[in-house]
Amino acid sequence: MKALFWRDLALAGRAGGAAMLGLMFFLAVVAVIPFGVGPDLNLLGRIGPAVLWIGALLASLLGLDRLFQADREDGGLDLIVLQDFSDLVLTVLVKTAAHWVITGLPLVVAAPLLALMMNVEPLAGGAVMATLLVGTPAVALVGAAGAAIAVSLPRGGLLVSVLILPLCVPVLIFGISSARAAVTDPDPFWPPFLILSAITLVFAVIGPVAAALALRASSD
């Protein structure tokens, strides 16, 4: 399993760009927002956390369809699916973890920088980073289920987003709530943050199990 994790990381490095593409998309989405709403720094500061979260959510969904598709194309997925069910669930979890390190972690690291550009207070920027650190794995985990369901489909990419976005609504709500709460005084930061962590843990169970079932079902 460790070998699988390192191989997937190495592949992302070799394949060139695949890892960085999500990050670039994130930058681009955040950069077009001021063109849409105007350069008013106060307004940007207010909506900044939300813009960062939505950008990160979309960027995390972007690369999800490749999670299993590359393995399917070269036939390796057959050998992965042939394992015991518990091993298969673990494999999915490991692959998702590698995927998150490649695509999710750069978003988390870039978030505070973009927060500065959006005139978000430093404290709120830190809060966005913390919530992204906890929240983006949830997107990747439930996204693994979507990626597994769509693995055999030619235009899976768009479909994965359509299937997964409604399920990501809670992650978005609690992520932005706690990021906001860090700066607006009366609202407490911890309750939404802890709920967000709980959702991530729930998805850590649901996502890989559903993905493993779906991979079995689509191994034709």
């Binding site: 439930v142 289920a145 369901i149 399920l167 809670p170 649901i206 559903a210 779906a214 079902a217």
Partner: peptide, 14 residues
């Protein structure tokens, strides 16, 4: 059939 059943159940839990 099986794939949409999985999606339905994931949605139902959610």
């Amino acid at each position: 059939g099986r794939l949409s059943a999985i999606l339905v159940l994931v949605g139902f839990i959610n």
